[in-house]
Each structure stands twice: as C-alpha cells, then as structure tokens.
Simulated scan of single mutants.
Amino acid sequence: MRAFLDARQAGHDPQMFMANGVMLPNPEKPERIAVLRAGAEAAGAVFEPPRDFGMGPIAAVHTAEYLTFLETIHPRWKRIEGAAEEVIPNIHPDRRQANYPKSAVGQAGYHQADTACPIASGTWAAAYWSAQSALSAAEAVAGGAGAAYALCRPPGHHAFADLAGGFCFLNNSGIAAEWLRARGLRPAILDVDVHHGNGTQGLFYTRGDVLTVSLHADPERFYPFFWGAAQERGEGAGLGFNLNLPLARGTDDAGYLAALGTALQRIRSFGADVVVVALGLDAHEDDPFQGLRVTTEGFTRIAAAIAGLGLPVLVVQEGGYLQPALGGNLTAFLRGLG
C-alpha cells in the first residue's frame, strides 16, 4: 500500500490543552508519527513524501480569511507583550456573523473553537503538509490504487471552513474528498474516530455531492458536545446526505459493527465510487479518551467490512493517542483492508 508523510508534520508540538478547567499535557504529540508509521509499515505500507498541490485544494473547503489567520497568527501573537508561546484563545463570539476584529486575541477567539488547538511556530507548516499528504493519497487512489494511507498529523476532522478545534486545523479528509469530487468521483466520508467529525459535517452539511457518515461516542456527555446527534441529517440540498450514528459509551466490537453495517448501507445507497475513511484509532478500549471499547481485532473486522464495499479506499489518519496498542491497531486496520 502506498502511504504518505512529510517530515515537517512533526514541527507542530503542542504543549498544553485545557480539560475540565485544568491545563494538561497535550496528547496530540509528534511522537504519534513514529508509532503510527511503524504500525503502517508492519502492514506493508511503503511511505513516500507528498507532492505539493498548493493552496487551491485547501482553499476549496477553507475560507481565505481563515487560511490567512493560520499562516500569520503566531508571529502576530508573539508581538503582544507577555504573550504565551502558543496561541490559545480566551474569548469567543456568540455567533459567526459577529464583528471580525483586527486584534490577534480577538481573531484567535473567532477562529479557534476551544483550547485544544494551540498554534505555535511550526503549526502552519505541519498542518499544510498534513493536508498535502491527504491529497497525495487521494491522487494515488484516483490513479488506480485500491487503497492508500495518509499519515495526517495534525489531524483534521474537527476543523470547519473557518474554525480550528480539537487538535485540528485543516480538514484533511474534507480536502481530499473535495479534490476527488472535482475529478468526477462521488466520495463518501466515513468517520470512525471516537469523536464526532463535526468539522467534516459542517463542510458538507448543505451539499448533496459528498456523503458524510460518522460513528462516534454519543456527544450528550462527550466531546464535541454540540454536534453529532442522530437528528442532524443535513440542510437544504444536503438534507439526507449526513448520517450520524452516536454510540453509547463503552460500546464494544459487536455493537460497533452493527452500527457500521447501517453506515455501509447508506454508502451503497449513495452510489459512492470511493470511500474516504477518517480513521480514528481512539475508539480502542485502552485509548486515553475512554469513549468506546473496540479491540485490536475489532479494527481488523471494521476494515474488512469497509473493504466489502468493493470500492477504492483512502485512509486519512485522525485520532488515536499514545498507548501500547496504538501501532498495532493501525496494523490491524490496514491488514483488514487487504
């Protein structure tokens, strides 16, 4: 299997994030790359650097205003006397139609949904090359590869068109899906991260040309809280083209695979000819976030079920955090595809 990764993706090294009012070490660390790479290689993946598609495919789903913010905010932030090393917002507007301030502090609040997406000196380059890795894997699939893997880090599925959140800055899965759609394909995005893919849903919520499906821990008491309910089905032209399958906390392999069957049937009904899998390995029973209880063997079964669609599969890495089974979970999933 062809796989894509750029060394600059390690340049984003977030130090802290806030949970329950407490500043904690950020779990989305560069060390994830080595573990995930080893897991992919154990499944036979061969890594190559991505090519540079430029800003066009990124700007196809993200606003120019937001991309300017991401690229320039850190040096602007550092001009504030006494500012922290990382850009972390302390105020947020109550609506997206609010005044757009010139202040770096105000713009951080406008474009960062929470305190889990700190921006430092290496963040923009890492996010940019993470997106280029997803695009390169999309190109491989469009060119005839049955499957390709993008080791996207930082991840992306919580990023909206103009909003970062939950460790995510650029929506890699959405960028890849839109690139595939522009080339005449009919993509479905299947998000299997433990957290709802709220940014991905937001990108395509009013559109009927990209199907979005997410299996995740029920957001009633789990991040991202405000998105991911079953009644969110899309709006306007997108009504019926978004499917959320919230799962009870602690759902095991059997429960997960039952819900996955519903997801795969929707993908068949959509007539997809390519599947973008937003792969979160944080549904595992030993992941630090403890949302679901999928086993390592469960990831093999999930991948085998997806492979049963008989469609090309682009795997875009999302969550999954440092714990002993992380690399083996990726190996299990990629082997299940083949």
Results as ranks from 00 to 15, higher is better:
residue 178 E to S: 08
residue 178 E to G: 02
residue 179 W to Y: 15
residue 180 L to E: 10
residue 180 L to K: 05
residue 181 R to S: 10
residue 183 R to D: 01
residue 184 G to T: 12
residue 188 A to G: 13
residue 190 L to T: 02
residue 190 L to R: 04
residue 190 L to N: 01
residue 191 D to Q: 07
residue 191 D to G: 04
residue 191 D to L: 04
residue 192 V to P: 00
residue 192 V to G: 00
residue 193 D to Y: 14
residue 193 D to Q: 14
residue 193 D to A: 14
residue 194 V to W: 00
residue 194 V to L: 13
residue 195 H to F: 09
residue 196 H to Y: 05
residue 199 G to F: 05
residue 203 L to Q: 08
residue 204 F to M: 13
residue 207 R to K: 14
residue 208 G to W: 07
residue 210 V to M: 06
residue 210 V to K: 07
residue 211 L to H: 12
residue 211 L to E: 15
residue 211 L to V: 08
residue 212 T to L: 01
residue 212 T to M: 06
residue 215 L to E: 03
residue 215 L to N: 01
residue 216 H to T: 10
residue 216 H to D: 11
residue 220 E to D: 12
residue 222 F to D: 14
residue 223 Y to P: 01
residue 223 Y to R: 03
residue 224 P to R: 02
residue 225 F to H: 15
residue 225 F to W: 15
residue 225 F to L: 15
residue 226 F to C: 09
residue 226 F to H: 13
residue 226 F to S: 13
residue 227 W to C: 12
residue 228 G to V: 08
residue 229 A to Y: 15
residue 230 A to D: 12
residue 230 A to E: 15
residue 232 E to T: 05
residue 233 R to Q: 12
residue 236 G to V: 09
residue 238 G to M: 06
residue 238 G to S: 12
residue 238 G to H: 11
residue 239 L to Y: 13
residue 241 F to M: 08
residue 242 N to Q: 10
residue 244 N to L: 09
residue 248 A to H: 11
residue 253 D to F: 00
